[in-house]
Computed example of a mutant assay.
Amino acid sequence: MSTPLGTTASRDQGRTLPTGEIIGRYTSYLDAQKAVDYLADHKFAVQKVAIVGNDLKAVERVTGRLSYPRVALGSAATGAWFGLFVGLILSLFAGSESGITITSSIALGAIFWLLFGVITYAFQRGKRDFTSTSQVIATSYDVLVDPTLAAEARKLLQQLPMQGQAQHPVAGSTGRQGQQPSQPAPDRPAQWNDPYAGQQPPALPPQPAQDPVTADQTAGPGTTGPRRGQLPDLPDGRPQYGERVEDRPAGDPAEQSGTVHGGQSPTGEAENGGPTSSQRRG
């Protein structure tokens, strides 16, 4: 099989992450292994199942403190086992002296391994005075199944009791990852009566319609609300407050000369149509 670019697709499926539907999540690998083993015991197609570890962490557990006597004893024991293995091989060709060969091989292996271990520990100069074991573990383990077989696998795992696993399929669950089905709300007691049943809320009085304020009636750019003085007129057409003053075009001679203080116009007449003070004296 070739790709659109003409290259051959990789056949190593172990280099890609498995895909499928999660039917259970467990906090330890042994619990996930137990779930898969249960599926295998019930003739399930386990070749469609995969265990995926999440959030891998490298863990090193300290087992003890190192010292020269402990290093020497451990190295001698390792050398003795290696000498025993070599002695058994040589005894096949030694004939009647096989016992001496095995004994000498064990002694030589213990001596040489003891010297090698003590010298190696001395070169470390106390930088690592402890023994430990290392392993890679995951925070959680997901059991993945092919989507076409997920319902069957979840039905089988519901029969397996798994204590301490919140996302293990349980009996009666319909959702994924062992979620409990939603329970219906409790029924209302028969003796309970609604004191407000049959009462209608009071009707609110109708609100008068308000004319929308247009953009030319606002106070100016960047502000909202009606302009000062722009109030609705009275029913007969007269202004509600004050007098209506029409906007005059720029450059009007009357606006440039200004009005006479005291309510007089530039022609010497009062604004209300009456004669001026000079005309009354004349």
Rank of each mutant, 00 (worst) to 15 (best):
T3D: 03
G6S: 10
T8H: 08
A9F: 07
S10P: 01
D12Y: 04
Q13C: 12
G14R: 15
R15D: 13
R15K: 11
L17M: 11
P18L: 12
P18V: 06
S28A: 06
D31P: 03
D31V: 10
D31K: 05
A32V: 10
K34N: 01
K34A: 02
V36S: 07
D37A: 11
Y38H: 09
A40R: 07
D41L: 00
K43N: 03
A45T: 05
G53F: 12
A58Q: 07
A58Y: 14
A58T: 08
V59K: 14
E60Q: 12
V62K: 09
V62T: 14
R65Q: 09
L66S: 01
S67Y: 03
Y68S: 08
P69H: 00
G79K: 02
W81E: 14
G83A: 12
L84T: 02
G87Q: 04
L90F: 15
L92M: 13
F93Y: 10
F93W: 13
S96T: 08
G99Q: 04
I100D: 14
I100P: 08
S104D: 06
F112W: 15
T120H: 10
Y121C: 03
F123N: 13
K127T: 04
R128K: 15
F130C: 14
F130W: 08
S132V: 05
T133D: 07
S134N: 11
Q135T: 13
V136R: 09
I137G: 01
A138E: 04
T139L: 02
S140L: 05
V143Y: 01
L144P: 06
V145D: 05
D146C: 12
D146Y: 15
R154G: 13
R154V: 08
L156S: 09
Q158W: 12
Q158C: 09
M162Y: 15
G164E: 10
H168G: 13
H168T: 09
P169L: 09
P169D: 01
V170R: 12
A171L: 11
G172Q: 01
R176S: 10
P181E: 00
Q183Y: 07
P184G: 01
P184H: 02
A185F: 15
A190D: 06
W192A: 11
D194A: 00
G198A: 13
G198E: 15
P205M: 12
P205V: 10
P206K: 04
Q207N: 06
P208R: 02
D211R: 04
V213M: 12
T214Q: 08
D216R: 00
D216K: 03
G220W: 15
G222N: 14
G222I: 04
T223R: 11
T223C: 14
R227W: 11
Q230K: 08
D233N: 06
L234W: 11
G237N: 00
P239F: 05
V245G: 03
P249N: 14
A250V: 08
A250R: 14
E255L: 13
Q256R: 11
T259V: 09
T259Y: 09
S265F: 12
S265R: 09
S265T: 02
E269K: 07
A270F: 03
E271M: 00
G273P: 02
G274Q: 03
P275Y: 10
P275A: 06
P275N: 11
S277K: 05
Q279M: 03
R280W: 10
